[in-house]
Design a protein around this nucleic acid. Sequence first.
DNA 1: AGTTGTGTTGAAGA
DNA 2: ATCTTCAACACAAC
Length: 285
Amino acid sequence: MPELPEVQTIVNDLEKKVVGLTIVDVWSDYKQAVRPNFSKFKKGIVGQKIISTDRKGKHLVIHLDNNHSIVIHLKMIGHLLFKPKKFSSRSTEFFDEKINGYIHHIIYFKNGDSLAMSDMRKFGWLAVVKTFEVEEMKEISQLGIDALSVDLSFKKFDELLEKRKNGKIGIVILDQKWVAGIGNIYRSEILFEAGINSERLIKSLNNDERKKLYQAMRKVLKKSVRMRGTSTVDYRDTAGKKGNFQNFLKVYGREGEQCPNCQGRIERLKLSQRSVFWCQGCQKN
DNA sequence: AGTTGTGTTGAAGA
DNA sequence: ATCTTCAACACAAC
């Protein structure tokens, strides 16, 4: 699932691959995912050059030179595949995997390159908006501070925790309106790294625990960005390749296995309808 | 073969 | 207000 590290990896790739390219056409076989509608989307982007890319929480933003921007949310399993003009189907795993074959949207560039969006479950969406309106979109304007923002000091993080003191940390940490970027995989990994149980009420966390949580959040997310994100079954980068962080997951998806720290059994529970993986020994209540 | 689990987000319901 | 459930969708595993 594209969470902060996966979306950041995609943005970093796009910055290298598509900035400077001019859009000449766009295709979709699932136009209801395109906002405000397909013809306005097409009109807004065709003929324009890409000038920069950005990330807002789990949203990708592609800025064009007509003061418009493309905003994309990949939701659970959407991913972008950059296909160079000189692409050879034998030279990469691009088409080898089924997960890369659910292509519903394609942007074509003047030089023959293209950028496709594969999205088996068709939850993802693309929008074109005026650049100054990106921040005003309701999906973007509601986002809390980015989990990796340089402006998110421990002091600020602690203040944010205090605002949600009556909540459970495992639920609040997933709330994009509180802090943006953390999804279900990193929730489990961050809480394990911090040694904190997901069901703890925030008001019960002492200063030492809050600091550990802050440091774990930064550490885990940054390491995953370096590793190009987590590919369980679905996430792929713009070359159609897997990230590497799945090899470093300590608890996520490991129910019944031994904890790497204390050799205890890794447990699983449901919190707000989603699985949390945790170690009874390392994350006591 | 029908049911369930998978997960992000927002909306609807309580 | 704040929490829970559901819907959007497709597919694998049972």
